[in-house]
Design a protein around this nucleic acid. Structure first.
Lengths: 319, 319
DNA sequence: GAACCCATGTAACTAGTTACATGATTCA
DNA sequence: TGAATCATGTAACTAGTTACATGGGTTC
């Protein structure tokens, strides 16, 4: 487990608390640990035990005393030994490849759905990774050796995703040439259209009190499928916003109809990516009681809420 | 954990024993499990419990009764549900990126060594993956949908490695332009030369009784560094051989001198990649007693042995 | 007062690995 | 005789995750 050495590497740059280390690991996309407490605090026990770090307890008048860890000379040696030791082989985990190996079982339409949704996920992952890299601990403003190394790392990671995207499109091309299965052939065409970035998504990016939100003004039904959730999230990421304002009539009938399950999935996706959504309901709108129930249910959380008043909605979004 | 679903996927193609499943998982490079018994036999307990598979015990007169597992209808449904469910995001683990982030700590020569050895490892991994893909369970001879899917999978995997190799060379180029550190500047030049494929490695591929071995005939000292081990292993892979015959004078002084540690590392590398090595010692050769001791030590294993007689060496290699 | 960040820590769990035990068969 | 492959299984372990507990400070 190289986590211990990563901690030494970070401490070698400056002394830190466990919490800071944890945050760095969580926000660095090439460190493949979740950065959970258990592992990190356990690691410190071991590092102290072996004499690679020392701990200085800083009591504050309040009370949550900080433990500031500092690397020792023997820790620095250990770090250097690790750095020059054999490097682990690169490895990947791609469930999609396993699924594809079994994919002859599936109908063409199912395959198309699978690929389309995978494409969405990877796109978003790529955007997220890029953002994280830009603001991660190792990012440097001024050009230097360190900055150059980070840019090499960045190139490696972004290529991983961009190759995956390219490959997905290749697979999609192949699948689209397969003979139709028994399902209605138009279904797949709809999917293909959906797959293109919606150019008719009317929206405005609004900045208010230093915070941004995206106001969707389209008169056409906006959220028709899971894919639209990805479109919205991607737009948010691209515009550095994490909140959206939807008008009641933007929601498609399928969305409002709970049986399709779209509402649930979409709200979950938005929540996953930490995007707040406010819906403005004009009084004349009458949704089904079950939808209203669900809206109320979600209102308990902090990521989706229904409003009748625009100002309320905006101030909640910016909160 | 999708291992259970992978097992269902395999059983959906044909009924099998646990051992067969295990072998398939171990030999399929895009299945990222080690394929250890514990996990697989535990998985069957769960699959039986949930009614996704049935077990037929085949008693043989001898005794090691086989358990042949067959997928049930409910298992097929479970498999299909999994196939159309959201696909996990692709993920990678690259220790090299973490090390590089801390790399400003290192001297240029150390960085060069690190990259050169990583390049070797990845090269070999790529060759191995390609071989495994060719002979894996999913490989089909005749063109078909299944074959096309496998070729898409293959493309994805091989690109992963070939991009990594390309990237390593880019990093090496950058590092080579860094100012020299205090270490002797010629050292790095030696490394660069080593890095090129040795064109003066004289060898013959000899096939005997359907088995192949590679006979190194070079009069120049052959094994000077760890890197040469990789060269030898790569040659073996490329020629589908897993045994090499070395002449005593092929071994460099550094190799024979145990203090450098090269002999140990090289023999370990050869063993790791399952390459048998026989050394022919002419009587007039006098190695240090310590080398002879180590040779004897290794002779207990089945991957390295010293001979004085050519015929003995060859018959051991082919055994 | 609710929710969220800082900061430390633990308990319980899942996933995955190595190594061992057994026994028969086959091949040199 | 010894080693390799087939075949099943278990024990002990490492790595890593989620979820919880505590408690202060800040912000709406």
């Amino acid at each position: 487990m190289s986590l211990n050495h990563v901690i030494l590497g970070l401490l070698n740059q400056e002394s830190m608390t466990g919490y800071e280390i944890k945050k760095i690991i969580q926000n660095t996309p090439f460190m493949h640990w979740s950065g959970n407490n258990n592992q990190i605090y356990k690691a410190f026990v071991e590092l102290l035990d072996k004499g690679f770090v020392t701990k200085e307890v800083q009591h504050h008048e309040g009370s949550p005393s900080k433990n500031i860890y500092t690397i020792t000379n023997s820790g620095i040696n250990e770090l250097k030994d690790w750095l020059i030791s054999d490097t682990e082989e690169p490895a990947f985990k791609k469930q999609i490849l396993i699924k594809l190996a079994f994919a002859c079982q599936l109908k063409r339409s199912a395959l198309e759905k699978m690929l389309a949704s995978y494409l969405d996920t990877v796109k978003m992952q790529a955007i997220l990774a890029e953002k994280e890299l830009d603001k991660c601990y190792f990012a440097e403003k001024e050009p230097s050796n360190k900055a150059k190394f980070l840019s090499l790392i960045r190139e490696n990671i972004l290529s991983f995703y961009s190759y995956e995207l390219e490959w997905i499109r290749k697979v999609q091309d192949y699948i689209s040439e397969l003979p139709d299965d028994e399902s209605i052939s138009t279904e797949s065409k709809v999917l293909k259209e959906n797959n293109e970035v919606k150019s008719d998504m009317n929206y405005k990016v609004i900045e208010n009190q230093g915070k941004k939100y995206i106001h969707f003004t389209s008169k056409d039904p906006l959220i028709q499928s899971e894919h639209d959730a990805y479109n919205i999230i991607t737009l948010c990421f691209e515009n550095d916003a994490n909140a959206v304002l939807l008008e009641g009539n933007s929601l498609s009938d399928d969305f409002v109809n709970l049986k399709t399950g779209i509402a649930g999935t979409v709200l979950q996706k938005l929540g996953n990516y930490n995007v707040k959504a406010a819906v403005i309901l004009k009084d004349n709108h009458n949704f089904t009681p079950r939808f209203k129930e669900m809206a109320l249910e979600h209102s308990k959380g902090n990521s989706f809420r229904v409003f009748t008043n625009m100002n309320e909605a905006v101030s909640w979004l910016l909160a």
